[in-house]
Amino acid sequence: MSQDIWVVVETLRGAVMDITYTSLAAGRILADGLGIRLVAVLLGHNAEPLAGTLGTADSVIYVDHASLADFTPEAYRRTISGLAKELAPRAILFGHTSMGMDIACGVSLDLNAPLISSCERVKLEDGRPWYSSPTCGGKIIAEGPIPDPVCVLTIVPGGYKPEAVRLPGPKEVVRMAPSAALEGLRITLKKYIEPQAADVDIAKEPMLVAVGRGIQQADNIALAEALAQALGGVVCGSRPVVDQGWLPVPRLVGKSGVSVKPKCYVALGVSGAPEHVEGISGAELIIAINTDPRAPIFNVAHFGTLLSMFDLLPALTEKIRQAPRP
């Protein structure tokens, strides 16, 4: 029984993803609180150097195999479940991501371990490890104990800053062979398709006007364009707006899009769902215009108004145009 806290490392084309560090930060709290070790589990092929930034972990387990060079659900899941059956960790933390969510459910069933998803924060309460997960678009927080002897969690960004735990190290790297067979996979990676080329890189823009589903229809994007123009900025948007084809894909902010860090982010009719908010944590000033007083966007915004954007925008844009410049 090792009873360590495990963090499954996510890598994409030779880079460790930020969610891994967020998970390591959560894992560190649990490991320290319970007086056990924090272990990062890295899968790949010729990828051992990636362990070099996992210094927050006490130890890294590295499994090398050609079938693990890139993420595919079955190979990764079998490898993790195989290792866990052998080494019996106390908890396994995955990212609540494209990779983690493909395999966390399967691993939990393989181990007969309860599953907790969208966990944002962890703590020790009366000596018991405890999770808290935002749910219902971030409007509700669910909490409870992390059951023993083993539990699987998926971690969302937001609770812990990745930078603080991106440390050189680790103290040891333990190389292991995959204990599970990696043949007969029903899912195989064919190729990667690069993101659509962008006319502007919103990650670099200092002034952004974001439109959400509250904009109602494509024609209304012009209202946001007018505001952006008055501010000398560009328009970006939430996923539903991009899925509707009202804005091009490179303008998408959030989990499946771009993380932005403007000096100012004006959010028009954006509710502030966790998948959106994770992309704007680097914004210096957030102004939210939303008619719902309980919209989670107000919890991250600095200034807000409940006026309808359709009432406010014409006046606001005009006043910005007219305002004296320093």
Partner: peptide, 26 residues
């Protein structure tokens, strides 16, 4: 896993809300 408590998000931070007419808010 069991949910032991559920609460509406009481944010530790909240936007400063600007009230008033359209002109005042603008």
């Amino acid at each position: 896993a069991a949910v032991e408590r559920m609460s509406r998000l009481e944010a530790t931070t909240h936007a400063e809300m600007i009230e008033g007419s359209t002109d005042q808010v603008a």
